[in-house]
Simulated scan of single mutants.
Amino acid sequence: MDGSTFTFFSKPSFSPPEYFVSEGHSVKGFYSMHLNALYDLQKHTYTDARIQPVRQKDEFRAFCDMVDRHTTLPGSQDVFVGDRGYCSYNNMAHGMEKNQYFLFRTKDIHSKGLVGKFDIPDVDSFDCQVNVTLVRSHKKQSRS
């Protein structure tokens, strides 16, 4: 699964107003959309897509929607591979709830991203298990 933004400087045949962008970007404005696409690596075909206005793009929601619509052959499990924009605990939980596998690219381990707090080995490649407890409250009492 990957997402890409497309810009049109002339009015496309479909032109919903939410795809028009004008404030501060261009004197005349332009049309812009974000495409989230699900590609089947074995069949070499796109199996699903979700188009969103660029100002309302939500790759997390697009991932969940496409996983919900995806049909898996009985007795098999699929692996959903997503770029950085799709890496979230909610998307991981969504894949696990559907009894599917997933692999997400994430931000660098030195960033404030999802894996920034984990104790990651300083080697080129590694395999490690981490345990995460998700809570609704971020109070200091619940972090112990």
Rank of each mutant, 00 (worst) to 15 (best):
Y39H: 08
Y39W: 13
Y39C: 02
L41H: 11
L41E: 09
L41Q: 09
Q42Y: 14
K43P: 00
H44I: 06
H44G: 09
T45D: 10
T45I: 14
T45L: 15
Y46C: 08
Y46Q: 06
Y46V: 08
D48G: 03
A49Q: 07
Q52W: 00
Q52K: 01
Q52N: 04
P53G: 02
V54F: 04
V54P: 00
V54T: 13
V54Y: 04
R55E: 11
R55S: 13
Q56G: 01
Q56M: 10
K57T: 03
D58L: 01
D58S: 10
F60V: 12
F60N: 12
F60E: 11
R61N: 08
F63M: 07
D65S: 04
M66Y: 01
M66Q: 05
V67L: 11
D68P: 01
D68C: 04
R69F: 04
H70S: 09
T71Y: 10
T72Y: 07
T72P: 02
L73A: 14
G75N: 10
S76G: 09
D78W: 04
D78Q: 11
V79E: 11
F80Q: 00
F80Y: 13
G82H: 00
R84T: 05
G85K: 03
Y86K: 01
S88E: 04
S88M: 05
N91F: 02
M92A: 11
A93R: 14
G95I: 00
M96G: 08
M96I: 13
K98Q: 15
Y101C: 13
Y101E: 12
F102A: 02
L103M: 15
F104H: 08
F104Q: 03
R105C: 08
T106L: 04
T106H: 10
D108P: 02
I109Q: 15
I109M: 12
H110K: 15
S111F: 07
S111H: 07
K112I: 06
K112M: 12
G113Q: 05
G113L: 05
L114F: 11
L114D: 04
L114V: 14
L114R: 06
V115M: 10
K117A: 15
F118A: 12
I120A: 07
I120V: 15
I120N: 06
P121H: 08
D122R: 10
D122Y: 08
V123R: 10
D124I: 08
D124G: 10
S125Y: 12
S125R: 11
F126I: 03
F126D: 05
D127M: 12
D127C: 14
D127W: 08
D127Q: 13
D127P: 01
C128E: 14
C128A: 14
C128W: 09
Q129Y: 14
